[in-house]
């Protein structure tokens, strides 16, 4: 994909976040506080798009062959393998910290992620994605995470299936941490 050009101060903040590894959220909060407030919407947009792409990338990473008795993990209406489910759960878990780091409500952050995913899918048009990543990307772009945050206020479960597997773990780590 083509190189993206935004204000260098935003690029510096995003690179610091990326370089912080598993402590990324703390670094993101620090960068957000230090950044010119006028650049905040750009930072949020960049982080949302990168985070959306991150979900597609980790889902498309090779996984170990599924065990014979392995049951698929339902996630936002898409069936994932157990390993993909673990990655998706960890990704979802990170969103709570990202929203907090950017000082956004979970609903606002889920909307940003949906916008980010739409831009990623647009940029990735023509590139090969697995059917799972493609389906989940479209679901997120259509606002499924927004539905998930509503769901955790007492509505439908975002995993939206009665199947077992990692469902419990996904629910326990779910967006907004409102259903435990």
């Amino acid at each position: 994909m083509a190189v993206v050009h935004v204000d260098p101060r935003v690029v510096t903040a995003v690179k610091a976040w990326a370089a912080a590894g598993v402590e990324g959220a703390a670094m993101l909060a620090e960068q957000r506080r230090a950044l010119d407030p006028l650049l905040l919407p750009t930072l949020i947009g960049e982080v949302a798009e990168i985070t959306a792409e991150q979900l597609l990338v980790v889902l498309d990473r090779p996984t170990a062959p599924p065990r014979r008795d392995e049951r698929p993990v339902p996630f936002l209406g898409v069936e994932l393998s157990q390993e993909q489910g673990r990655r998706a759960a960890a990704w979802l878990d990170e969103q709570r910290d990202n929203a907090k780091a950017l000082s956004l409500a979970p609903e606002a952050w889920s909307e940003q992620l949906a916008d980010g995913m739409r831009r990623v899918l647009e940029r990735m048009r023509g590139r090969s994605l697995s059917s799972t990543a493609s389906a989940l990307g479209s679901t997120v772009a259509d606002g499924a995470l927004r539905g998930a945050t509503r769901g955790f206020d007492g509505g439908a479960d975002p995993t939206s299936s009665t199947k077992a597997g990692l469902r419990g773990a996904l629910s326990a780590r779910a967006f907004g941490n409102k259903k435990q």
């Binding site: 190189v3 995003v14 912080a20 590894g21 990324g24 991150q54 990338v57 673990r86 990170e94």
Partner: peptide, 24 residues
């Protein structure tokens, strides 16, 4: 370790995306 490993995978993916995004 397994949970940490998944988080590390996410961090590696993020770093790689950011590298591609701004520096090609």
């Amino acid at each position: 370790a397994p949970g940490q490993q998944t988080k590390a995978e996410l961090a590696v993916a993020r770093s790689s995306i950011v590298g591609d995004r701004y520096d090609g």
